[in-house]
Design a protein around this nucleic acid. Structure first.
Lengths: 256, 256
DNA sequence: TCGGCCTAGAATGCATGCAATTCGTCGAGC
DNA sequence: GCTCGACGAATTGCATGCATTCTAGGCCGA
């Protein structure tokens, strides 16, 4: 249930112990339980995740590739810290990669995949035009938004590209749904949601029309909305710190 | 000596045993000693690489992330097979990513980095205008060509992008220098080299001029040269099989 | 003769022991 | 009082043993 969003993430399923360690470690890192920049001692986390050192080490190797852990020259791992600029770059890179996905999709022409994409866009429309305030509504929006981006990658028919996008999305705040929760309140946020949905629709249209360049530009522009959301989220530092991964980001020239 | 090109590849240096296993396994895979699609039994390769199972397993996890190994659902790893289309996608993706690097570089404006880039272009010019036939000349060209692409990523000032490009380059025939050796002979190949060098120069110019879009388009076009080289290389199947990674590529609808 | 089941072998995944290295701290010397 | 060095604790990296799971081959039956 809780990791429903994880299941399509990794095509390769490691053994259960490693998977458990990866999921638990990710949680510990993103919640800030394991402080950023701090060494992750194997014996210290062995009891936190409930697996032995061997699968734990495998999991840490995996998280190193995901970018959440960094290898220390002298051995062992530390929780990676991210500058705000790195987060911005990750978002921009996601946009660039999704742009490439759009271009590939426009060239490969998978009609059934495009139908599914349109269906998701329609569902999103229904959400946005319905009653605006409801927690289940927002959950549903998050789900559909993620689904749109997954389907976008799928119609690109390029598994390698999907892997790259997954890798980028593993970084803090780089996921397409990273800021949807924070958008619940302000009027500015509502405007952004409306624009985002316009992007969704026009991206799908451009792909179907075979206009890869337009779709690519739109995808990049779409990601720039996340940049604006990031700016807004950083403004309330305390709330930002409570977001998943917020504890990993250094703000104000190296502070935390 | 032989792995000189590897040293700048990975920022993160694993422990010597793991590194040894990774390098040796890569070699075994790319040379086809471990046949594509076949299971890689740990005990079988333990004596081939000279390390124990634990570091070997770490190395295999790493190669899985590189894309050369795939996890089997029932456990263990197999040597990945690549379709020709996947190789083409990898090359195109490298071009797309290098294009993004160009755009970032044009925006970030690192003059000293650009000077280094220009210097490499000048050196490449000198190589191309000198005597055309010499093995050391070709080695030097390969070195400078790789250096150009490394510096290109460096001036983008986006380490994450560098990681993605490294990941793509780890796939067979996706490296910028993958086909330079095969270009020694034909007149067509010489023309491609000339055009490639023109790309190098104009890319550097466009970045310095701050014209990210032009640089991006050129980078993508540059990668398309590799696609042409791939087509040419595939024509001589026997020679292709002897290239590093050639044994991993399935040609003709699943044959080998 | 072919197909399915069962069994023996093998391979993986995991846990833990051991040695080497690193890190922190305390003490001594300047 | 400060710095350098050395010792001890802690941690990593590696190797190997064991249990579980998978695989392959043979045997039996149709």
């Amino acid at each position: 249930m809780t990791d429903r969003s994880q299941s399509p993430r990794r095509r390769t399923s490691p053994s259960p112990q490693i998977l458990r360690a990866v999921l638990r470690l990710r949680e510990l890192i993103l919640t800030g339980t394991l402080p950023a920049g701090q060494r992750v001692a194997e014996l210290k986390v062995v009891d936190l995740v409930g697996v032995s050192r061997t699968p734990l080490r495998l999991a840490m190797e995996r998280l190193e590739h995901e970018g959440l852990l960094a290898r220390r020259p002298s051995g062992g791992f530390v929780v990676r810290e991210f500058t705000l600029q790195e987060v911005q770059h990750a978002i921009e890179l996601r946009g660039a990669l999704e742009g490439v996905a759009c271009r590939f999709a426009a060239e490969h022409r998978d009609d059934t995949g495009l139908d599914a994409l349109d269906a998701t866009v329609d569902e999103l429309d229904r959400i946005l035009h319905g009653q605006p305030e409801s927690s289940t509504t927002f959950d549903e929006y998050v789900r559909l938004n993620a689904q749109f981006h997954e389907q976008l990658v799928r119609v690109a028919k390029t598994p390698l590209l999907g892997r790259l996008i997954e890798q980028v999305q593993g970084l803090p705040f780089a996921s397409p749904s990273a800021f949807v929760q924070t958008q619940a309140t302000s009027a500015e946020s509502l405007r952004i949601l409306i624009v985002a949905q316009e992007h969704h629709r026009t991206i799908a249209q451009a792909i179907r029309a075979g206009d890869g360049s337009r779709a690519e530009l739109l995808a990049r522009e779409h990601a720039r909305l996340a940049l604006r959301n990031l700016d807004a989220a950083v403004r309330d530092i305390d709330a930002f710190r409570r977001l998943p991964g917020g504890a990993l980001v250094m703000l104000d020239e190296g502070r935390r």
